[in-house]
Design a protein around this nucleic acid. Structure first.
Lengths: 138, 138
DNA sequence: CAAATAATTGCAACAATGTTGCTATTTTTG
DNA sequence: CAAAAATAGCAACATTGTTGCAATTATTTG
């Protein structure tokens, strides 16, 4: 029935107003959300601390993933089903659009294989592209 | 003669104590530096604001480049010669070592070509790998 | 379903990080 | 070396992130 409740239940998180509201926001949003977006979008009477803690536990559980950026504004986006507690499998590329400023997950663009010199042990690779998205480019 | 002075001169920056000291730090350091590293390393009597402003102008001039990360701790590293005012050409991969915590520029590892679907316009691609560096892996 | 237990929230206080305007100082220029 | 330009330092403030604790809310158990 209720998709949101299920997601929380499946990840062994109590179903609370705050978590429901934040998860709803992610489900309704195309592109990634910064902490400040959530603060604005989740209604006025929302403690900042709750947002921090909710985002942390969502990341931990593999419900959302953090997208790095070079301008000190981490964004978060929903993970695909393969992610779970303690492990993320987000092998897609992210795009920051310089026109609409959105950060998008390009699920169809897979992170390429990078050849490292011998001696390195690579665990995971993040790719963030800067450019213009489909919508803004037309 | 003086390498540091030349770098500043070539980039049309006044040669000041602060800039010399911060540039020296970068030249002496293997790996990238965070703002806080510089604050610690540059001596006690250093205004934080000066560091912010110096880093900004170094990035603008193409002397250093910012390395994104998913944990809100931007680091900076020296650019190669091809970088200049207003344009960066850092087509190398970055590695964050989970053992020594250093962020390294792997100049020998070139950012691969990523194929985006039609409609996107890509300006630049950042690749950050997480893993273990050569030193720590031996 | 109510009581007991466990988990989460909100608050307050604080720490760290980043920004802006202004004046004093330093650097560069002529 | 003096005038002009650029930069540093200071203060004040805004934003972002963290921690401990008491009160509230959710879940579990009988």
């Amino acid at each position: 029935m209720n998709n949101i409740q299920n997601i929380l239940r499946n990840n062994k998180l109590s179903v609370t107003e705050g978590r429901k509201k934040i998860l709803q926001l992610f489900l309704n949003t195309e592109g990634a959300l910064a902490h400040s977006d959530i603060e604005k979008g989740a209604g006025e009477n929302f403690d900042r601390v709750t947002i921090y803690r909710t985002l942390h536990s969502f990341v931990e559980k593999g419900i959302i993933h953090a997208i790095p950026s070079a301008d000190n504004s981490i964004k978060y986006a929903l993970c695909k089903d393969e992610c779970g507690e303690g492990h993320h499998h987000d092998h897609h590329v992210h795009l920051v659009c310089s026109v609409c400023q959105k950060t998008l997950c390009l699920d169809e663009v897979v992170v390429p294989i990078v050849n490292f010199p011998a001696g390195y042990c690579i665990k995971n690779i993040e790719v963030v592209a800067n450019g213009i998205c489909k919508q803004c480019n037309s």
